[in-house]
């Protein structure tokens, strides 16, 4: 079995994030919160309670000056395909609230179906899932800024990055109006991709040779997080720095970074 499987002719949306370009500015996180009605609290210092669909981590090579080097690593939901769509979270959900769609490769989360057992959070090796400990409270007047195309969540359910599915739905609607059979690469882009001032994030259909991600993911510098777990994620990272590529998994001293697939 080849770890990196295809869905045949269907779409498989994914991202390639160039870590050499990322400056860690956090625009992607802000854009994501605004686009997806992600709730926030007055005091966000307790990271166990805060919700960040997209989160930028700071990595360090741990060496003293002058060899010190840091790297910022944006982490959305990895939309793992696993083997035949059995991603870690989908496999454990007792409610069918989370699901893998073979048509798009997107792991969906239906908030009204979720009853908050949080098995999926335990199963997710990327900490990409978040629990709503409280009902969202919007500062007065802010409810007018909510995105009407994204349903808001309530206390007691799990949520995570959806690859801005509402933008895919809108893109398909436009295509229906124009009588087009399919959408183009530029028609559907996630909020974080468009917000990144450095252009570090590339989004598209990993199965489509015409899309930029198709070529980028095949670069020798590409790696995925926790490659050896077999989660088969759809977020690829690029870095020319060996220590960054090694940081993608728990390698022993004598091991090199694993090859994709």
């Amino acid at each position: 079995m080849k770890a990196e499987e295809n869905h045949g002719n269907t779409k498989k949306f994914g991202m390639v994030i160039d870590l050499d370009v990322c400056t860690g500015c956090g625009s992607c996180m802000v854009a994501c919160m605004a686009e997806n009605n992600v709730p926030f609290r007055k005091d966000e210092s307790d990271k166990l309670k805060s919700i960040t669909w997209m989160r930028v981590y700071k990595l360090s090579n741990g060496k003293p000056y002058p060899e010190t080097d840091i790297c910022y690593l944006p982490r959305p939901c990895q939309h793992c395909e696993g083997h035949e769509g059995h991603s870690p979270c989908v496999s454990v959900c007792p409610a069918t609230a989370t699901d893998y769609d073979m048509q798009t490769g997107i792991v969906s989360q239906i908030y009204t179906r979720c009853f908050g057992c949080r098995y999926c959070m335990a199963a997710c090796p990327y900490h990409a899932r978040y629990f709503n400990w409280y009902d969202p409270v919007w500062p007065k007047g802010m409810e007018k800024y909510l995105n009407p195309d994204v349903s808001v969540r309530m206390r007691g359910v799990v949520e995570k990055c959806s690859f801005c599915i509402q933008r895919y739905q809108a893109a398909k609607n436009r295509a229906f109006m124009e009588g087009k059979a399919d959408i183009e690469e530029g028609d559907y882009q996630t909020a974080c991709t468009q917000a990144c001032p450095a252009g570090a994030i590339t989004f598209g259909d990993l199965n489509n040779p015409a899309h930029a991600v198709y070529k980028l993911k095949k670069q020798p510098n590409a790696f995925r997080l926790l490659e050896r777990l077999g989660t088969n994620p759809k977020i690829y990272y690029l870095s020319s720095r060996e220590w960054v590529r090694r940081a993608g998994d728990n390698y022993l001293k004598n091991e090199g970074p694993a090859k994709i697939g």
């Binding site: 269907t10 699901d99 893998y100 769609d101 048509q103 798009t104 969906s108 179906r113 994204v150 599915i165």
Partner: peptide, 18 residues
């Protein structure tokens, strides 16, 4: 319609949900 859901063998949930 194309059935993409791994869990239900029906349509993916995000076809009709947001």
């Amino acid at each position: 319609a194309v059935m993409g859901s791994v869990q239900t063998q029906k349509e993916g949930c995000f076809v009709c949900h947001k």
